[in-house]
Structure formats: structure tokens, C-alpha cells
Amino acid sequence: MQTTPLRIGTRGSALALAQAHETRARLMAAHALPEDAFEIVVIKTTGDQIQDRPLSEVGGKGLFTKEIEEALLDKSIDIAVHSSKDMPTVLPDGLALTAFLPREDVRDAFISRKAKNLMELPQGAVVGSSSLRRQAMIKRLRPDIDVVMYRGNLQTRLRKLEEGQVDATLLAVAGLKRLGLDDVITSCIEVEAFLPAVGQGAICIESRADDEATLMLLSGIHDPETRVRLEAERAFLAVLDGSCRTPIGGLAEISEGKIRFRGTILKPDGSEVHDVEREGPVSDPSGLGREAGEALKAMAGPGFLSS
């Protein structure tokens, strides 16, 4: 019987808090627990504090997780709620991704007051994005467009768009939906044109691997299909590049007992792209992801990822 509140660690952005609240609500429903059985603990991460340059220049994905993982290890929180696409492929010893919530829409949203979609933007339009993947994919489809670095939380990016600092931006559909902001979406970009980031749309929960009581609680909200898909995607990413210095997209989908995986890597300027597709049994998602990653590495050649 739980006597002290389960402490849920999260970043302080509106989206991160919405994800922590969703996790709490699911745990309350699964175990018939009151809200005061949980405490949400906001932790400021290095990634939240750096707003003036791309994270790829200062350390990559781990900047959004380091302080939260330290709190897990020193037992000042019990679980951490993350956006799966923010998670490095290698976790600190003693920690594990122990639950995934059902995955939301994986697509990217195009948001603009000047065009219905990316292809209809006028020549020379300015698009803001902090994602190397989105920047490269935009440049590949529309080399005439000026893509500018665009940091800040989701609300800040929408405000900059309204102020006219850019003509359009791209954001994850899932994040907008979780904040009740899907009405700002001009159009959704289908995955055939724009493969999402690895893990996009999936909330993951990290905890101490040996904390049996917490693992039991989390099992009540865990979605096995999302785990299988994320295992394939994260294995693919681990082969290529665990950080965010290379434009990479990857998506695993399950149909009729099989995983279909698609992956892509691009040059940052969009001038060169390599794609891979693999299908395999749901029993070995990591093996399928690794195979796809190795195939892409072989296609691209030794200098591609380091350039």
C-alpha cells in the first residue's frame, strides 16, 4: 500500500506539464487513486535555459533529460515523464524506459497564415524551425525557402509566427493536440512526404530499473504496441547517431502482426537523402531497427554522418 505520494518529475513547459498531468490521470484511473497520491515535481533542465542557439551545437538531446535523470538517481523523484523524441539512445546505469503511453498522431503540422501547405508558400518565404530534420526536409522540398533557427517553447513559436517574424513554422501535431491547440494547424504533412522524428507523438516514462513497486504501478498504464514501435525506432537511431546533429527520420508501424519500418537520413541542406524500408516480426523490433540503420549507413557511406 502506497503511503507517500509518487513523485512525477517533469520539465516546466506547458506541454511537459500536460504530459505529466496525463500520466497522473491515467495512473489515478488505473489504480483508483486520488490526485493527492501523486506529486508533480518541476525540474529546470539545461535545454530549457538555452534559447539562443541550436541544441545540436551544445550537447544535443541529453540537455532535456540530464537534471531529471539525476533526480531519479538521487531518489528525489520516482518517475520521469518525457517526450520520447527528446530521449538519448543510451540511458544512465540503473535507469530504464519502463512504460509508454498510447502514441498520439506522429505527423508534423504546417502552420501559416500565408499558405495552405509548404508547397504553396511564396518563393523566398521564411520558415522557422529548430529541428535539423524539419529544416533539411523543408530545404529538400523547397530549396528556395529561407529556413531560420527558431527556439522557444510551443507558445513562443506560435507568438513569433503571429508577430510576422516568420511566414510559417512546423510543429508536432501530437503536442498541439495535447495542449488543445489543434485549431491552429493549417494542414498536416503526411508521413510519406515527411518522416517524423524517432519517437514523435509518444510519451515515455523513465524510472529506476530496480524499483519494483513503481514498476507495478506503471504496468497498469503501459501500452505494449507503442513500446514495440519505439524499440525499433530507437535501435535504428542508436546505429546512426544518438544525438541530434544529423537530420534523421524514422517510423515503425504495426499491421497484421508485422512491423513496417521506414527510415531516412539527409544532409542538413537537403541536397542528399537516403531512405530505407524494412518489414519484420513484432518479436524482434530492435533487430529490425538495427538492420535498417546499418543499411542506411552502408548506402550513405563513411563521411555522411560526420559531415
Score class of each variant (00 low, 15 high):
Thr4Phe: 12
Gly12His: 13
Ala16Ile: 06
Ala16Val: 11
Ala18Cys: 11
Gln19Gly: 08
Ala20Glu: 07
Ala32Trp: 00
Asp36Leu: 12
Phe38Asp: 03
Ile40Met: 13
Ile43Tyr: 10
Thr45Met: 04
Asp52Lys: 08
Leu55Val: 14
Leu63Glu: 15
Asp74Cys: 14
Asp74Trp: 07
Val90Cys: 11
Leu97Cys: 12
Pro102Met: 05
Pro102Glu: 13
Phe110Pro: 13
Glu120His: 02
Pro122Ser: 13
Gly128Phe: 09
Ser129Arg: 07
Arg134Asn: 15
Met137Pro: 03
Val148Trp: 15
Val148Pro: 12
Gln155Thr: 06
Thr156Arg: 10
Val166Gln: 03
Asp167Asn: 04
Asp167Tyr: 01
Leu179Phe: 01
Ile185Phe: 07
Ala193Leu: 09
Ala193Thr: 09
Gly199Pro: 09
Gly199Met: 03
Gln200Gly: 08
Ala202Arg: 01
Ile203Asn: 10
Glu206Gln: 04
Asp210Cys: 02
Asp210Glu: 09
Met216Ser: 01
Leu217Gln: 04
Gly220Gln: 08
Arg227Tyr: 05
Leu230Asn: 07
Leu230Asp: 00
Val239Ile: 06
Val239Glu: 08
Gly242Trp: 14
Ser243Val: 01
Cys244Lys: 01
Pro247Leu: 08
Gly257Cys: 14
Ile259Trp: 02
Ile259Phe: 09
Leu266Gly: 00
Glu272Trp: 07
Val273Trp: 06
Glu279Ala: 06
Asp284Ser: 11
Arg290Gly: 10
Ala292Gly: 09
Ala292Pro: 02
Glu294Trp: 00
Ala295His: 04
Met299Ser: 15
Gly303Asp: 13
Phe304Ile: 14
Leu305Gly: 01
